[in-house]
Nucleic acid binder design. Structure first.
Length: 671
RNA sequence: GCGCCCGUAGCUCAGUUGGAUAGAGCGUUUGGCUACGAACCAAAAGGUCGCAUGUUCGAGUCAUGCCGGGCGCACCA
């Protein structure tokens, strides 16, 4: 509402500028004054006008005088209480508080504006299925999942994919570990993968975590062992042999583990797309034909890339580029005829956009923690099901992948756009985010011995290869334990099940918020103290505020819906009384801030930056806590004022819960 | 060599298209619970926004050049 209101005022202002000064402005900057006392909306339009008028007439103009002329013309506008000129020439608008508040109360949550741009395919998580997930993988998943929640709330149609690289080097390494290092048979591995476990360490994903790092060290001892990797990888890619069967067993079981881990954080997927199917269903050969036809790739007959199909770099390949150590052209098919990763990824993305002319087969993998179907691709037509939802055929895609992959991602998009010229594809993006690293203290806590060089560094990179990292399940376990202690100290009357449930909700809030409070481009140097905190700028702080707001109504014994009926009789004039004076300003600034959730949500959606919603939620919680201390609602004796305060609490309560929901965080019954 | 990201309080980080006195959390010091639950609130201290020029009414934000840190630039994935 406030955003449409602002748009309305803006339109009126533009018309006034046209009429009074004969100047046509494209758009107006609108901002929110630093203090409530200064108004609700501010336009620095007079500065721009003064400049334009001086350019046209050569006469110097006083911005304050110009602003005053506009102020007079705007004062009578509907919904505007008054207009002031402030500072060097700001045009400050005061809204009709009582009226806007009444509108907010009766309105409920307004839906996002549907964009009608077709289906957006968001790919996230995409962890190599060869070991347990760590905190860096969780950043990816939380970022992707939260972005999807925000996009959907903003009216987008989204399909969630999790790409499974089940035929890659990382899986091959673990296969090598089982076969050559541990000398285990298929049956022994199957038993290991299926055995029940009581501790995390006994879990198959944890077992593989250790094995993977042991294999890395084993290669180091004798580099000729790397030939085993190449051979194993080749067998896995080819399929239909014993090695491939082991790879399939391992990757499938690890994918299960990953899905279980992510479910703990309320993260799920519509479809798991596997690389094995992209290979076996010959996606590449189709893509290859299309790329050749379109001229996107060319066959080099001379030079360094002789015998390869390459995607040429953009025009301005500098003279003397041949001399350069690095080549701007991207090889898609090697001179030996094999296709590179970029080529395969282009094929996959053409499928995402329905431009490949081929489809996967699908089978139902599981029902997730919320009872929704999770599908997975299969190459085996016999076991496939036909009652699956329509997958793919998106109009654009969004890939949540760390920033290190920017270069290959740019190449994939370039290749796809050479074939699919739809302007909506241009919307497609690589949602790049920075890594999670470890502080030296965290690395030591994990039992690593730091080298001389490492201890001098600000941060240390996690490494699956070295087995260095904070495992997701370990961290969630610790958060749940800590939260359980707090809950048990506060709510002795709840049974253990109830206490555990709340502790879980708090743990999820703590972890998700911890990963969302940073901007995507900021490296998170993981520190146990920060991550395990429930105080201050944290998810539990926000939950606590929402729970407090709910408690007011519980204590009162009335539901907000009930009270809303009562409030209908309250006049706008009476409301305005409560929003005047010093305490009225404080009250109003809370209401006004609460009214901006949708605005923030749309900004967040447009920039694929969930942190805006996260930070907004924190600020709203903070402002609510201030209100909570300054206005003791249930002790208020003036009944009309009490009702108004209750409505403020209800408005904030609803917005807080919605903001938390957008972040994938639940509001506990009690805390 | 080319490209991208980061540099803001002791620490970790915000700062929407340039706007009014640069903000928060943690930490430090001090005060507030017979409670709409203190997982909270209040107050204090803490800044040459890496450096330098420039653009303009106005720069943490834009441009150019430096300095410092991280990461890319495979016939790997």
């Amino acid at each position: 509402m406030s955003s449409s209101h602002a748009a309305q005022i803006k339109g009126h202002l533009l018309a006034q500028v046209r009429e009074l000064f004969q100047i046509e402005l494209d758009d107006l900057a609108a901002e929110i004054p630093p203090k409530t006392e200064l108004g609700d909306l501010a336009f620095p339009v007079a500065f721009e006008l003064a400049k334009r008028l001086k350019a046209a007439t050569g006469e110097k103009q006083n911005p304050r005088e110009l602003a005053q002329k506009l102020a007079d013309a705007l004062a009578s506008l509907d919904g505007v209480a008054r207009v002031e000129v402030a500072g060097a020439g700001y045009l400050n608008i005061f809204l009709d508080r009582g009226r806007m508040f009444a509108d907010l109360i009766s309105m409920g949550d307004d839906p996002g504006a549907g964009t009608e741009t077709g289906k957006l395919i968001v790919e996230h998580t995409s962890i190599n299925p060869n070991k347990a997930a760590h905190i860096g993988h969780v950043r990816n998943a939380v970022l992707g999942d939260t972005t999807v929640r925000i996009l959907r709330a903003a009216g987008e149609t989204v399909e969630i994919h999790n790409y499974i690289d089940n035929t890659g080097v990382q899986v091959a390494d673990v296969v090598v570990g089982f076969i050559h290092l541990e000398k285990k048979s298929l049956e022994e591995i199957r038993a290991l993968a299926g055995r029940p476990f009581t501790t995390r360490e006994e879990g198959f994903d944890y077992y593989c975590w250790d094995l993977y790092s042991r294999v890395g060290a084993w290669y180091e001892e004798d580099k000729t062992r790397l030939e085993l990797r190449a051979k194993t990888l080749h067998e896995i890619e080819a399929g239909g042999n014993a090695t491939a069967e082991i790879g399939e067993l391992i990757s499938s079981r690890i994918v299960d583990c990953h899905l279980d881990t992510m479910a703990r954080l309320d993260i799920s997927y519509d479809l798991l797309a596997r690389e094995s199917e992209i290979l076996h269903l010959h996606f590449w050969t189709h893509a290859f034909e299309k790329l050749k036809e379109s001229g996107a790739i060319v066959f080099e007959t001379e030079g360094r890339n002789k015998g390869c199909w390459v995607m040429r770099a953009e025009e301005e390949a500098l003279p003397g580029a041949e001399e350069s150590e690095h080549d701007a052209d991207k090889i898609i098919v090697r001179s030996n005829g094999t296709v590179t990763y970029t080529g395969k990824d282009i094929a996959y993305h053409l499928w995402k956009l329905g431009k490949l002319g081929l489809d996967f087969h699908y089978r139902l993998l599981r029902r997730d923690h919320r009872g929704r179907n999770v599908w997975i691709t299969t190459g085996d037509e016999a076991s496939a099901r036909h009652d699956h939802p329509p997958f793919g055929n998106g109009t654009s895609f969004l890939n949540v992948i760390d920033v290190g992959q920017s270069y290959p991602q740019a190449n994939v998009k370039r290749g796809v756009m050479a074939i699919d010229h739809d302007e909506r594809v241009a919307r497609s993006a690589h949602l790049a985010y920075e890594k999670v690293t470890l502080t030296p203290a965290a690395a030591i806590e994990l039992g690593t011995e730091l080298s001389e060089a490492d201890s001098q560094r600000q941060q240390i990179g996690m490494s699956g290869r070295k087995g260095l990292g904070v495992k997701a399940d370990d961290l969630i376990d610790r958060l749940e334990e800590d939260a359980l202690k707090e809950v048990q100290a506060r709510h002795t009357d709840l049974g253990l099940e109830g206490q555990r449930h709340i502790a879980h909700q708090i743990a999820v809030a703590a972890l998700r918020f911890f990963l969302l409070k940073y901007t995507r481009t900021s490296i998170i140097a993981f520190d146990f103290n920060d991550a395990l905190s429930f105080d201050g700028e944290t998810g539990p702080y926000i939950q606590y505020s929402a729970v407090r707001a709910n408690n007011i109504f519980r204590k009162l014994g009335r539901t907000p819906d009930d009270l809303r009926q009562d409030f209908q009789a309250t006049s706008v004039e009476q409301c305005n009384r409560f929003f005047s004076g010093e305490s009225g300003n404080d009250l109003w600034s809370l209401v006004y801030f609460a009214s901006r959730l949708n605005e923030v949500m749309h900004v967040s959606a447009a920039g694929f930056e969930p942190t805006h919603v996260a930070r907004y939620a924190f600020q709203l919680a903070k402002q609510f806590n201030l209100f909570y201390h300054n206005f003791h609602i249930l002790r208020e004796e003036d009944e009309a004022r009490k009702l108004c305060l209750l409505m403020v609490a209800d408005l904030v309560r609803r917005r807080l819960q919605k903001a938390l929901a957008l972040l994938g965080i639940e509001t506990p019954e009690r805390m």
